[in-house]
Computed example of a mutant assay.
Amino acid sequence: MLRAILGNKSGRISVGDESVSVREVYKDREDMLTAAIISRVSYLSDEALNNLFQSIFTDSQQDFSGLLDVEFWPNFSSSLQSRVEPDVILHFEWGVMIIEAKRPHDSYQYAEQWIKELESLPSNYREGEIYFLSLGGSTANNKVELARFRGLKDFYENVSIPNPTFMAYQTWEGLIDYLQRSKDSGDLSRSDNNVIADMIEALELYHVHANIYSLSSLKPLNIKYSSLTNISNIRSIPSISAGEEKPITNLASLPIQRLNWPIAATAFDTVKESKSTWRVKPFCNINERALELWKI
């Protein structure tokens, strides 16, 4: 279904008297994004799964590879509210992780909601460790709410609220940056790479984009470097003789071909390879990608 939505092949549905594309409905619902991302987390290999959560819970030494179950929107009763629905609960051998997710860009996390979700946890969910992940909201918003959470928890002194072993937050922007780095590392298996590629595309549909760029995303420069690699027939170049090596400081002195190179490259260093062949390298500090082409 995600692939059909991403390809705008998911059709339309009626919302009231209006016909709306499923793609637009998807983009408007944070629950759809939560399901698309977290459901794919469970498809990751043990190593990739552990690396993902270790990047978020940086102070934890816990092993996150043993994921047993993923529970979406469980319905719990609470003394603070008639019904409480955490977005996701991940079950591990050592305990549970509660995930509260918010839509990108225009949604905020609230400490009061975190309190209610923790208080509503059934007793069998409290038997092991409890991790809490705030996913979404800005960094500033999460820092404020974490500070408020500690004060609010003390306020509810007559209510049984378990102490999370660890609490952490991750913005969607931070998550997609991590995913893009993982994808670019070349260390992923083919299946992990495909899963992470889907997660990245799902986030981009919500206009969440990585602040880092893969090498494959860079457009090649229009540089005909093959015309610069070798210069033959050096007798036709008046500024160079067969017995000496000196810079060519005037591009006009190279009548063999017109060189297609950035304007800033106005000086070249010639390196003699044989009696009939010279290599040239620019003196100037040019674009790193172009410079890579000149490695000899």
Rank of each mutant, 00 (worst) to 15 (best):
N250W: 05
L188G: 06
I263N: 08
G151W: 04
F72G: 10
I98Q: 05
D28F: 02
L135E: 04
S241H: 11
R279L: 15
S79K: 15
E244A: 10
N8A: 08
T249K: 14
D184C: 10
D106K: 14
C284D: 10
R29C: 05
R279I: 13
R83C: 11
D177I: 02
Y110A: 10
I231E: 09
R83M: 10
N260F: 01
K224M: 00
I176Q: 04
L133M: 03
G243P: 02
Q113M: 11
A202Q: 00
I37T: 12
C284F: 06
E18L: 05
N8K: 12
M199W: 06
L175S: 06
Y108N: 14
L254G: 02
I240D: 03
S10K: 07
A35C: 12
N75V: 11
D31S: 12
E127H: 07
P122M: 12
S182V: 00
Y169G: 04
G66P: 11
A252S: 08
E292T: 13
D31H: 07
W294F: 13
C284I: 02
E273Q: 15
R190L: 00
E245D: 13
E127W: 00
L121K: 04
N233V: 00
Y26L: 03
L80S: 07
W278F: 13
G136N: 02
A101Q: 02
L259C: 00
L44S: 09
A36W: 10
A101F: 02
Y108Q: 14
E24F: 04
L44I: 04
S79W: 11
V25T: 06
D198N: 14
Q113P: 07
N193H: 07
I263L: 07
R83H: 13
M1H: 14
N50D: 15
L121W: 01
R258W: 01
R279D: 04
S120H: 06
P255W: 05
E93S: 11
N260R: 09
S65M: 14
I196Y: 01
A4K: 14
V84L: 08
W261F: 11
S45K: 13
A36Y: 09
Q81L: 12
A210Y: 06
V144P: 07
